[in-house]
Design a protein around this nucleic acid. Structure first.
Length: 168
DNA sequence: ACCCCGATCGTA
DNA sequence: ACGATCGGGGTT
């Protein structure tokens, strides 16, 4: 497995979000192809948790690239992100879709479903994806086409086409 | 202490 | 179309 290093994540978030498509997410016994991502970028992105500055919850987004940002949404669901870009610039990529290559394959179309299946919870918040033994992303040479759309479930920043989804 | 609401999902 | 469910963050 050609595991992604910190320099992959320490780049412009739109590049990282697009290039994560087709990569393999490994979490313990589970692994799957990333099929859908969203970018959340900087203090000026109104849809980002970091839009109103640093807080206890979002401070991980201000940290070093290559760490997991996991938060609870709607009191029930966990969402998995990977922090991108330089320290002190808040940005992350939300992992929204995964295809588990079992037989038959399992399609996980949604950030909450994906975390529930994998068993990702807030215990994984702040995990270093670059050095963790059981939690990382690998490049297996998959090439994918994708399309860009507005992000899902947000009420501002709808003009930005920062959701990326593989085309079959 | 209180209130509003959210990067969702399953059911109707 | 709507309810579940609860913590984050702002306000009193």
């Amino acid at each position: 497995m050609n595991r992604l290093d910190r320099s992959f994540f320490n780049r412009p978030t739109l590049k990282v979000a697009k290039e994560l498509l087709g990569k393999v997410l490994v979490f313990g016994e589970h692994q799957g192809i990333i099929t859908e991502t969203e970018a959340y970028i900087g203090l000026d992105d109104p849809a980002s948790h970091a839009a109103k500055g640093r807080t206890k919850r979002n401070e991980i987004m201000f940290g070093e690239a290559g760490f997991a940002y996991v938060y609870l949404i709607y009191g029930m669901y966990n969402c998995l992100n990977f922090v991108t870009e330089e320290e002190d610039f808040p940005a992350a990529v939300l992992i929204r879709g995964l295809k588990i290559m079992s037989s038959p394959p399992v399609i996980l179309d949604g950030p909450g479903k994906l975390c529930r299946f994998l068993g990702v919870t807030r215990e994984q918040n702040n995990t270093d994806i670059i050095t963790s033994e059981h939690f990382y992303v690998a490049d297996v040479g998959n090439f994918v086409n994708f399309k860009a759309t507005p992000r899902i479930g947000i009420s501002s920043g709808v003009d930005k086409l920062w959701r990326f989804i593989v085309k079959f």
